[in-house]
Every structure is written in C-alpha cells, then in structure tokens.
C-alpha cells in the first residue's frame, strides 16, 4: 500500500484505540489537581496530552504552580 495510506490507516486506528472521552479526561485532570494540590499551590489546572506511540501511550502532563507547600514527612 502506498505509504500515505499506510500512515492514514495507522492514524485512524491509533485515534480509535485512544478511547479517552472528554469526561474521562476531565476526571483525570480533577484527580491530578487534587493530588498535586497537597504539595503545590497550583496556578492553573493540569493539561494532559495522551498520544499513542509504538504500541504504547505517551502521557504529557503540564502544570504550573505559584508556590511549594511546606510539609514534613511523618518520621
């Protein structure tokens, strides 16, 4: 098959395999915000990008914080 069609098939299948709906993504963002807020003062909600790569998934999480929270680990 011509290379552009092979790439097209791969793209179609990869997109289908990535079955994260907008609601699922929102749930992950909320959970991440809660977890990270224990340690940082977040300035914005995390941004997550999930993309298929070589049969696996690459997950990029981008988040910025205004300050680090002071905490001491329990001895």
């Amino acid at each position: 098959m011509k290379r552009d069609n092979v790439i097209r098939l791969k793209r179609v299948i990869d997109t289908d395999r990535l079955s994260l709906t907008a609601e699922s993504m929102e749930l992950i963002v909320n959970d991440l915000s809660v977890a990270l807020s224990d340690y940082f003062v977040l300035s914005e909600a995390p941004v997550i990008k999930v993309s298929p790569k070589d049969g696996k998934y690459e997950i990029d999480i981008r988040v910025s914080a205004e300050a680090l929270k002071t905490f001491l680990p329990v001895p």
Binding site: M1, K2, V6, K10
Partner: peptide, 15 residues
C-alpha cells in the same frame, strides 16, 4: 504495486 494493503501490512497494523 502497493495499491492495496498487503496481508503483512494488515498483520502489523492490527497486531
């Protein structure tokens, strides 16, 4: 001639 997918390409794509 590469005008349709070969079984080998299908095997790779569908794993």
């Amino acid at each position: 001639t590469g005008d349709v997918f070969t079984p080998e390409q299908i095997e790779t794509a569908l794993k």
